[in-house]
């Protein structure tokens, strides 16, 4: 998986004070759900979506699902 950058991401959960860990998270759009590997706080569930994922891969997936 292409999550090298995410694995190295230095983010900690501010509320729980612990570093994020790799986890399978569902993301959904227009009635379709997909599992993706993201960094997540194992205690409160807050996740990290890197800029690259949001602007390229997610944007592309959104476009496909919107039938553009």
């Amino acid at each position: 998986m292409t999550l090298d950058s995410a694995n190295k991401a230095p983010w900690h959960c501010a509320a729980c004070g612990i570093p994020l860990e790799k986890a399978k998270v569902q993301i959904a759009y227009l009635g379709s759900a997909f599992p993706v590997d993201l960094l997540r706080c194992s205690r409160c569930g807050i996740v990290f979506i890197p800029e690259e994922l949001a602007l390229t891969r997610m944007a592309e997936a959104e476009k496909i699902l919107e039938d553009k």
Binding site: V25, A28, G45, I46, I49, E51, A54, E62
Partner: peptide
């Protein structure tokens, strides 16, 4: 998503922001 830093005056300075439409289904433990 907004990345920001605190400034000495108590305000924030914006470093970056981005967005997506896909929804995060947070499987909260």
């Amino acid at each position: 998503w907004v990345e920001y830093s605190s400034t000495p005056g108590g305000a924030f300075s914006i470093n970056n922001a981005y967005s997506h439409r896909m929804e995060i289904i947070e499987g909260v433990k």
